[in-house]
């Protein structure tokens, strides 16, 4: 028993201490800060009680806007990535698989978000961007589209960049899932001459379900905290139409210097994210416990 415990400490010690030190402590500090008015620069530091939350949930239209943008971004980008990723994966599995196509698919995923964001920003440049140039040449548009400075388009442009970057990951995850489907099921369907649509919805997707869920959850949580792509492409503008929760919190910290209020935004985001995780946990009950 004693060596047992020693072993647990040796193997799990570092794993549990590091996050405790660098994640749990910061979260506690975040909680404390969110109950304060704190502007370090001006040496303001006093208790505010729940005032920050009252303002945040009650009067702050900007917070609700940011939440809406975050949800829109999450739903659109993850949804489209799953559809596209599934298409690519199906093609790789049943069309023609090739190592090269996987390399090519992996490229966008492997480059830094900042690079892909700048890349798209450049391609979407209103005056000299390649996308406007092509669309103008084809005659599909009559004047340059202001992809990143039109409040109705900017968030969609960021979604486009995100889809470009992360569809490959989804493709590979789903491809892996497809490969795990037993050959016997596939050949049975072939013998039965199951129509393709039926085959997809009644045979493949149920088999693929765990993988689809995993991809959706991981990407969903990742999209919910989106920062880099948007920060680099639009910085939250125009007219805050691309401001997500992470960006709003960041701006409140580092531009408004309000550490108290920024913390209450960030903590609200964490709580929302934990709620999402909790829902997942219930959806996947006892997945990790050995039966």
């Amino acid at each position: 028993m004693k060596t047992e415990f020693k072993n647990v400490v040796i193997f799990l010690g570092p794993l549990l201490i590091l996050p405790a030190l660098f994640v749990i402590w910061p979260l506690i500090e975040l909680m404390v800060l969110s109950l304060k008015h704190k502007v370090i620069l001006f040496e303001i530091d006093r208790w505010a009680g729940l005032e920050n939350y009252q303002y945040l949930l009650g009067k702050d239209a900007r917070f609700w806007g940011a939440l809406g943008n975050t949800l829109y971004f999450t739903v659109c980008s993850v949804g489209l990535e799953l559809v596209l990723g599934l298409m690519f994966a199906l093609y790789l599995r049943f069309g023609k698989e090739s190592a090269w196509i996987k390399v090519i698919l992996l490229l966008p995923w492997a480059i830094p978000n900042v690079v892909s964001a700048r890349l798209w920003q450049w391609m979407l440049h209103p005056e000299v961007g390649i996308i406007n140039h092509v669309l103008l040449t084809l005659g599909w548009i009559n004047e340059p589209v202001l992809w990143l400075s039109d409040p109705t388009l900017a968030l969609n442009a960021a979604i486009l960049a995100d889809i470009w970057k992360t569809t490959p990951l989804i493709t590979l995850l789903l491809f892996a899932g497809l490969q795990r489907i037993p050959e016997t099921i596939l050949s049975a369907a072939k013998v039965d001459r199951t129509p393709p649509v039926r085959f997809l919805f009644y045979i493949l997707l149920p088999q693929l379900n765990p993988m689809l869920m995993t991809a959706m959850i991981l990407r969903g949580l990742d999209a919910f905290r989106v920062f880099d792509v948007i920060y680099v492409m639009t910085g939250g503008g125009p007219a805050n139409s691309t401001e997500t929760l992470s960006i709003y919190a960041y701006r409140t910290y580092f531009q408004s210097l309000q550490f108290g209020y920024g913390s209450s935004i960030a903590l609200t985001q964490v709580i929302l994210m934990l709620a999402m995780t909790w829902i997942i946990m219930n959806a996947f009950s006892s997945k990790w416990d050995r039966s």
């Binding site: 799990l12 549990l16 994640v23 975040l30 905290r225 992470s246 964490v270 995780t277």
Partner: peptide, 27 residues
């Protein structure tokens, strides 16, 4: 080595992995 609690640990790790970076950046 663990008999119990592995689900709890794995989920906490997932939470750490998916934690919005902005929430811990100032602490």
């Amino acid at each position: 080595l663990l008999e119990r609690g592995r689900r709890w640990i794995m989920l906490s790790l997932l939470v750490v992995l998916m934690l919005p970076q902005v929430s811990v950046v100032t602490p």
